[in-house]
């Protein structure tokens, strides 16, 4: 039960790929790693739907005993005035109220619940297409009074569950945690890896150097569709580019010279020249950027980008197994 919607909270899952040829954005959680780890923490399948919370959080009342996990951005999270730790399973008693205040580090927090948020499947996805107003909960951001249904709760971790429920408090959490964001091995100030885009070579030598050296600022117009960046104005010679498919991470250069970096809710096709594409592993960092943040870019090859994805997948698998083991121990 949503008691306060927060700045922008919406139901998101792994998105709805497969319909881009019909103009349907793939969408889904911006920070896919946080969504997957959060779901593992509560014993869900990795892509079940959760609440994506942006900037300032909602207040959520639990209408039944449940296991939750908060992952992604760091935020002031509490229950009955007591801070609730993130990146671990937390058992909440029926009637408990989760208060999620300001996000203190990063931009987007994921609240995963045992059983997952149960919304109707629309075009293969449970998440909200906010721009086109379908999917998720009533095709819109969450507001006060919304009641979210939960999927069937499996008893995945009976020992952990037994230990956590043996409490008089409103909630209980184990002493251990996983911190994927901090453990990802990339300090947040490191430049973002950028692969060559189809039109990068049309930038003059000075602009090419600026693209890979200068600092760009994230503008407040940024949203789930794209990060709007401002840095040294880049110019491209006249370039008439017939609309073509685009993907997450594509960096477009409109005539005003301020790059647009596409995120999950990107339009399926675009007509602006593409000067670069961020590596897939950067997706989770892009999701956590906030207006005013400064970013830099560094060239990256395709083989290296895919190798990094495979390595991250291996690290995630280790975390998944470690989690299952800890939870089984109780």
């Amino acid at each position: 039960m949503i008691l306060r919607g927060g700045q922008l909270s919406s139901v998101q899952d792994a998105g709805r790929p497969g319909f881009q040829a019909l103009g349907v954005t793939p969408g889904g959680a911006l920070d896919t790693v946080a969504l997957r780890v959060g779901n593992w923490l509560v014993g869900n399948a990795e892509h079940q739907a959760a609440i994506e919370i942006t900037w300032a959080g909602p207040r959520i009342g639990c209408t039944e005993d449940t296991l939750i996990a908060a992952t992604g951005a760091a935020a002031e999270l509490s229950c009955a005035g007591v801070p609730v730790p993130g990146w671990r399973p937390v058992w909440i008693r029926k009637g408990g109220v989760l208060e999620i205040g300001q996000v203190t580090e990063g931009a987007r927090l994921y609240l995963c619940v045992q059983g997952g948020i149960d919304t109707p499947v629309v075009l293969g996805g449970l998440g909200t297409d906010l721009r086109n107003r379908f999917g998720g909960h009533a095709g819109r951001a969450l507001i006060r009074g919304d009641v979210l249904a939960l999927g069937a709760q499996q008893e995945s971790y009976p020992r952990l569950h037994a230990r956590l429920t043996d409490t008089h408090g409103d909630f209980a959490a184990p002493p251990w945690q996983v911190s994927m964001w901090r453990d990802s091995g990339v300090p947040s100030a490191a430049p973002l890896r950028l692969l060559t885009g189809p039109h990068q070579s049309r930038l003059g030598p000075k602009d090419q150097a600026a693209l890979h050296g200068a600092s760009f600022r994230v503008l407040p117009q940024s949203d789930r569709q794209a990060l709007r960046l401002q840095g040294p104005a880049l110019t491209l010679g006249s370039c008439r580019y017939p609309s073509a498919g685009v993907c997450r991470g594509v960096m477009q250069l409109p005539p005003d010279g301020n790059p647009i970096l596409l995120l999950a809710d990107h339009q399926t096709t675009g007509g602006y020249p593409v000067i670069g594409v961020t590596a897939g592993v950067e997706g989770t960092r892009l999701a956590q950027l906030r207006p005013g943040d400064a970013v830099r870019f560094v060239p990256c090859g395709l083989a290296q980008a895919q190798q990094l994805l495979l390595e991250r997948e291996r690290r995630l698998l280790i975390i998944k197994h470690e989690l299952a083991w800890r939870a089984a121990q109780g």
Binding site: P17, G18, F19, Q20, A21, P26, P242, S243, A244, G245, V246, C247, T268, T269, G280, Q306, L309, L310, E313
Partner: peptide, 21 residues
């Protein structure tokens, strides 16, 4: 391969690099 998007003069093929490998 999960999406095949025709453009004006192009086709964009979206794939999962982990599954590709």
């Amino acid at each position: 391969v999960h999406d095949l998007v025709p453009g004006v003069q192009s086709v964009c093929i979206h794939y999962d690099p982990v599954r590709l490998a």
